[in-house]
Amino acid sequence: MATPSPPHHPELYSPGQMFTWPELQTLAADGVLSRFHQHGFTLPDVRVSAQLRARAAANAVPAAVRQRVVAGRMTAAWIYGCADEPDRLALLVDAKRRISSLRSTRGCTLHEVRLGPFDVVSMGGLMVSSPLRTAVDIALHVDAHRALPALAGLLARPEKDVRLRLLVLAIEATPRVPHKRAALEKLALLAPALVAGGPVDVEHTVDASDGAEDVAEVLGVAHLEGKP
């Protein structure tokens, strides 16, 4: 039997949307398609973008709940191209919504959180936590082994608009939550590689009411005091 040929131009190929799972695997084995996601394929010459990864993640979320959840944490970091794809989707559910009806959603982990108006962006048919919110959540809730490379990726990409000073301020501004000190210690490990001036002094953390100059002093990085 001849290998089926994909039609022209669709960027994303998923099981059931033109081809079955075995057919997609055959196309990938023959070099016709390239696999970039657990159940997502594209043509080999297509650049895999954040939009495309978001579309692939959206296909993995049941349509009935897609507009009620937000891809976050390491799933959002993968969408932004700053981490490997996690085994399970991390989905955020705003605390104002009822989460009980979503408990049976398969292949994902649900996290009930409070989301602000600037914490969510829409891309590829899916709501995704903003880069800054993603960085805050990863610093607070993800173990250092996985968190550090993802945070470094988000901080190193100017287009994501995540700054070390803003990240520290955002973490300090969160209510009393566990792991806040551990989150600052993760940033302390990243600081020498990201900015000149040495490691973060986490022995003296700052309060949410402190100004940017105080945060810069905690970071031990003089040039962070410049821009508001």
Rank of each mutant, 00 (worst) to 15 (best):
L126P: 06
R157Y: 00
H141Y: 13
V113F: 11
H111S: 06
A135T: 02
L140T: 03
F118P: 07
T105V: 14
A139R: 13
G107E: 00
F118E: 14
R163A: 04
T109D: 11
R157L: 03
L132M: 12
V136A: 10
T105A: 10
R146T: 01
S130F: 03
S101H: 09
A139T: 01
R114I: 03
C108F: 01
L115R: 12
S101I: 00
R146I: 06
L164D: 06
V121E: 15
S129I: 03
D119P: 14
D143I: 01
I138A: 04
A152T: 01
P117H: 10
S122A: 05
S130L: 04
L110M: 04
R165E: 00
L155C: 05
L110Y: 09
G125N: 12
G125I: 06
R157V: 05
L154R: 08
E112N: 09
A156T: 06
H111T: 03
F118D: 13
S101D: 04
T105Y: 07
I138N: 09
C108Y: 07
H111N: 00
P117A: 11
A144W: 02
T134M: 08
E112D: 04
L155P: 10
P131M: 05
V121C: 15
K160Y: 13
P158R: 12
E159L: 12
R146D: 07
L102T: 05
S129H: 08
G124N: 12
I138W: 13
V120A: 02
L151N: 11
V136I: 14
S101L: 09
R106Y: 00
L164Q: 02
P131H: 07
H111R: 13
L154V: 00
L164F: 08
V128I: 13
L126W: 02
A135M: 05
K160V: 03
S122Q: 15
L140Q: 09
L154Q: 10
D161I: 06
P131A: 12
A152H: 15
P117N: 01
G153F: 09
R165W: 01
D161Q: 14
S104M: 04
A156H: 05
L126E: 06
P158A: 08
S129T: 14
A156W: 01
S122P: 02
V113Y: 10
L140S: 07
V121N: 12
L164R: 04
V136G: 09
S104C: 05
A152M: 01
E159N: 10
P117Y: 07
S122R: 15
L166C: 00
R114H: 11
S130N: 11
G124S: 08
L102N: 06
L151Q: 06
V113A: 04
V120K: 14
L155D: 02
R163W: 03
S101K: 13
V162Q: 12
D161E: 14
G153A: 04
L102V: 00
M127I: 00
S129P: 11
V142S: 07
R103A: 01
V142Y: 09
V120G: 04
P149D: 03
L126Q: 15
R106M: 08
G153W: 12
F118K: 15
S104G: 05
V142M: 14
L166T: 11
T105W: 02
A147S: 14
T134Y: 06
P117F: 11
V142R: 11
F118A: 14
P158G: 07
A147C: 10
A147P: 15
K160C: 08
